[in-house]
Amino acid sequence: MIESPLVEVKGLHFSRGEKTIFSGVELQIPRGRITAIMGPSGTGKTTLLKLIGGQLTPDVGRVLIDGHDVHELSRKALFTLRRRMGMLFQSGALFSDLSVFENVAFPLRVHTELPEAMIRDLVLMKLQAVGLRGARELMPAELSGGMARRVALARAIALDPDLVLYDEPFVGQDPISKGVLVQLIKTLNDALGLTSVVVSHDIPEALSIADYVYVIADGQVMAQGTPASLDVDEDRRVSQFVHGEPDGPVPFHYPAPEFFRDILDLEGRP
């Protein structure tokens, strides 16, 4: 169904110490679309973004971005490739010693030789797109969480990247900020012709803008499809996650000894 995907993840295995995070993940991220990667907390969604961005190296498997194997590139080539990517971090990750304006100008200053007047225009355009042109003089410490994320978004798109990776963009946001971010991700993707990857476990928000969805659990792709097809998926694990049911195949209880024996402290006794 996908023609020439921008990002391909093939047979990805990754473990941290003794813990296996991914065992054979296969993904294809189509160009010009919004792809949501969802899954319960702790399934390694952020780790997957770091693997795509080349910050972590898989044990086995490949990540291809526009045909380039991210983990085969030299350090210099990897940094060059990253100029075509933008990443929005959960915390915003703004540079705390630079103002809002300078944060957005940072990628332009380090990667281009543009004159100051043009940098100013570009920065104001990006800030206008996220609605924070008036906040250009503020320092990151003076921003609310939602504003910081919007500034980080303006910075992520400063170099007009091909690919934007969003790490949990809706976490900890009030309903208004959430709505603003949902709309921004959709508008920017369509207006700038981006390819967006949204990692999230906020189901309604992610499903409302995604063109295609991958659900990851237990180190593998548990389900994939359009939002509509996932909504009616009959797999109990998928429906538990998509409909937010507290108990099901993903248990409510952390693995523990049998309750009655535990409470009477019978463990270890005959």
Binding site: Q55, F79, M85, M87, S91, L94
Partner: peptide
């Protein structure tokens, strides 16, 4: 350390700056 904890170093890497 604080720059690392607040992901500023990671975001710098992702902007393509070492």
């Amino acid at each position: 350390g604080l720059m690392k904890a607040t992901e500023q170093l990671t975001s710098m890497e992702m902007i393509g700056v070492d």
